[in-house]
Nucleic acid binder design. Structure first.
Lengths: 333, 333
DNA sequence: ATGAAAGCGCTAACAC
DNA sequence: GTGTTAGCGCTTTCAT
C-alpha cells in the first residue's frame, strides 16, 4: 500500500497524490475528491520515512530529559508531546538517567533519526555534543542553561518573581529569620535559585546570614541533614525555603523528628510544586514552576526555528508564582 | 554526509560500509578498520529513515499510554525506553489523555511511522483500531486486556497474589471486617481487582459482605465519598483496601475528617505503590504493581515477536506483592 | 493544474 | 569477502 497504488486507483500521478496529501499546491476539486476517496478505500497511510528521505524534514523533535520518573518531567513531556502532535510533529524522548555518558547516546539517536530540533531539558551538557548538533544546523533549545546563539534558544525561568512573592508572604506572617536549603552546587539551576534567594532577601531589607544558607542535594535526605544543621544553630530560623519540593519534604521530616511542628514552630516552603506536594501533611506551600508552559515554549522555540529565515535563537521567559498551602503560618511569638 | 562519501573515503563500496555498520556479514579486518576510521573522521551517522525504507524495519516501537502525568506510567515508559535503547530500538510515545478518539490519532501515528510493534497500555481500545494494526502484521502487546492471538500478546498482572498477601497481613493483625473500594466499574482492570478481592476474601474464610464493596473512581474524591459511606454503616469495617493509591489517599482524608486515626481506628491499604505513597502521613501500606517489569515485559514481547518465525502471541504473567508501611495496624479491640 | 522522472540514503539480492 | 545495482516510497524540480 503506497502512493503509487493510490495514484493508479485515482487515475492520477503520484505527484498529485502527494500534493493532495500535503496540501502543498492547489489541486482541482474533482481530482482531490478522487484521490481522497482512493486513499480512504485503500486505507493508505503515507510512509513518513520515505517522506523524510525525499524532503529532508523528519517532522520529529527530540526531547532529552534526565529521568521521566522524576516528577518534574512528566508534565513537560506531556505538553511538549501534545503541542507537537497538534502541529503534526513526532517526539523522540530520551532519558539520560543523570549520567553524562548516556547523553552521548541520546545525541546519537537524535542525529540518526534526523530530528528537526532538540530540546535539552537536563542541565549537564557537554559542549562537544552541543556542537555535534549545532554543526548540522539542528535547532536546540535549552532549559535555563547556556546562551542564545545561532540555532540555539533558551527557555528562561524567572525564579526571582516567585521567590519575592514567597518572602513577602513570610514577612506578612511576621517572619524575619528566613533560611534557605539549596540544591547541589554543581547544578546550575540550583545555583540560580540560591542566588535569587540571597538577592531577594537583601532587596526586601532582611538580614542576610550566611549560616542560614545550607547546602542540600535536591533529595529528601539532603533536606533532612540540612535542616538538622539549621535546628542546631543558636538562633534557628523561623521559616525555611527549599530549592525543591523533595528537599522540603526532608526538612519537614527532620522538624517533626525534632518534636517540632510545621508550621506551628517553623514554616516550610518548597520549590517546583510537584504533584505530591499537595498531598503532604501539611500540604506544602511552594513556588510553582509552570512545567506545562516550559514544554510548550520549548517546542514552540524549535518549531519556529524551522519556519523562520535565518538562524537567530530566541529567548522565552517563564515566571514562577507562589502557591500558598498550609506549611507556612504566623511566626511563633 | 552519507554512506557513499564514507565508501569513497574508505575506498570500498557502500555495501561494505553497510556491512560494517550493521555487522550483518563478516568483513576483513583491514577493510573494517578503514571503514571505521572513515566513519569517525567524517562524523558519519547513518540515516535511519533511509535504512527503514531499504530494509522495511523501522526499529521503532510505539508505546501508547493514557497520560504520562498519571504516576502509574512514568516507570513503565522509563523501563520500556531503557530496554528498547539497549536493543538499538527507538520509542514513540503517545498519550491518549483518556480520550478514546485520541486513540485514533495515536494509531495513525504508529502506522505512518511504520513501527515494528505497539504496546497498548491503556484499557480503552476500539477493536477496529486494533484491527488496523493487526491487518498489517504489526505485533501488539496489551496490558491485562484482550486475549492472546496472532501477533497479539498480553502482559497479565496477577492481582490475586498481592491481594491474598494483604488479606493475610490484615488477618494477622486481627482484622475480620475488611472492606474494598473499587475503581470505576467501566474500567476492566478495576473490575479485575475488585473480583480478585471478593474471591480472596472467601478463600481466606472471611465473611463476604456486599455492603463492604464500595464503588470509587480511582481518584481522591471517589475514595472520600466511598469511605464516608463505609463509616456510616452500623458496623463499619476495621480495614479498607482501595483499588488504587489515590483512592486510599481519599479514604485517609475522610477518616481523619471524621476524627478517626489511621491505623489506630481503621487500617488502610492502597494499590499500585505510586511514589507518593511512601510520603504520605502515615506512609501507605499498599500492593505494589511492578511497573518497571511491565515496561520491560511489554517491550520484550514485541521485540521477540519480530525475531520469531510465525506470529503466535505470548502471555507474560507479572505478580504483585504487599508492601507493608504504617497505614495498617492491629485491629482496635 | 498535472505528469514524468530524478533523486533522497540505505539495504539486500546477486554476481564474482 | 566485496562490488554492483535495483529497489524502498516519497518529494520536488521541470515540463507541459
Amino acid at each position: 500500500m503506497n502512493i503509487r497504488e493510490v495514484a493508479k486507483k485515482a487515475g492520477v500521478s503520484t505527484a498529485t497524490v502527494s500534493r493532495v496529501v500535503n496540501g502543498t499546491v492547489p489541486v482541482s476539486a474533482l481530482v482531490e475528491r478522487q484521490v481522497r476517496s482512493a486513499i480512504k478505500s485503500l486505507g493508505y497511510y503515507p510512509n513518513t520515512h520515505a517522506r523524510t528521505l525525499g524532503s529532508g524534514r523528519s517532522h520529529m523533535y527530540g526531547l532529552i530529559i534526565s529521568d521521566i520518573a522524576n516528577p518534574f518531567f512528566p508534565d513537560i513531556v506531556k505538553f511538549f508531546e501534545r503541542i507537537a502532535v497538534e502541529h503534526g510533529q513526532e517526539v523522540l524522548i530520551a532519558n539520560t538517567d543523570y549520567q553524562p555518558q548516556r547523553m552521548q547516546v541520546c545525541v546519537r539517536r537524535m542525529l540518526e533519526r534526523r530530528v528537526d530540533g532538540v530540546a535539552i531539558m537536563t542541565s549537564e551538557m557537554d559542549p562537544k555534543l552541543v556542537q555535534l548538533l549545532n554543526k548540522r544546523g539542528i535547532p536546540i533549545v535549552f532549559l535555563d542553561t547556556g546562551h542564545v546563539g545561532p540555532n540555539i534558544s533558551n527557555v528562561l525561568i524567572d525564579y526571582v518573581s516567585g521567590i519575592e512573592q514567597a518572602i513577602e508572604h513570610l514577612i506578612s506572617f511576621g517572619h524575619q529569620r528566613i533560611a534557605f536549603v539549596s540544591g547541589p552546587p554543581t547544578l546550575a539551576s540550583a545555583r540560580t535559585r540560591s542566588n535569587a534567594f540571597a538577592l531577594s532577601i537583601k532587596r526586601k531589607g532582611l538580614n542576610f546570614r550566611a549560616d542560614y544558607m545550607q547546602i542540600g542535594n535536591h533529595r529528601i535526605d539532603g533536606g533532612q541533614s540540612a535542616m538538622a544543621k539549621l535546628l542546631r544553630l543558636r538562633q534557628p530560623p523561623t521559616a525555611v525555603m527549599a530549592s525543591n519540593d523533595l528537599t522540603a519534604i526532608g526538612m519537614m521530616r527532620e522538624i517533626r523528628a525534632a518534636g517540632l511542628q510545621v508550621p506551628g514552630d517553623i514554616s516550610v516552603l518548597g520549590f517546583d510544586d510537584i504533584e505530591i506536594s499537595n498531598f503532604l501533611q501539611p500540604p506544602l506551600t511552594t513556588i510553582r514552576v509552570p512545567r506545562a508552559e516550559i514544554g510548550v515554549s520549548a517546542f514552540n522555540a524549535l518549531y519556529a526555528a524551522n519556519r523562520r529565515r535565518g538562524n537567530a535563537g530566541t529567548e522565552h521567559r517563564i515566571s514562577t508564582e507562589l502557591v500558598i498551602r498550609e506549611s507556612t503560618g504566623l511566626v511563633k511569638s
